[in-house]
């Protein structure tokens, strides 16, 4: 038997060992991606809001003067 097949078979326990490692990889990668995406979208949202505040400030000032 070729070494790759032997490695994948894991002495007959392949169907338990590989799902355990695959599930671990999936959960850890999923949580990481979700955390990074949430951070990115909030950073973008904050930048947008700060821009909006900058843009509205002069108009508000004018409104108060008027």
């Amino acid at each position: 038997m070729d070494p790759v097949a032997t490695f994948l078979e894991m002495g007959g326990y392949g169907r338990f060992v590989w799902p355990a490692f695959a599930f671990t990889a999936l959960v850890l990668a999923g949580l990481l991606v979700q955390s990074l995406r949430t951070l990115k979208s909030r950073e973008a949202q904050l930048a947008f809001l700060r821009d909006a505040v900058e843009r509205t400030r002069p108009t508000r000032g004018e409104a108060r003067e008027a």
């Binding site: 007959g12 338990f16 060992v17």
Partner: peptide, 10 residues
Amino acid sequence: GESVRIMYVH
């Protein structure tokens, strides 16, 4: 046997 490898994530 080889099933012990699950220990490294468990």
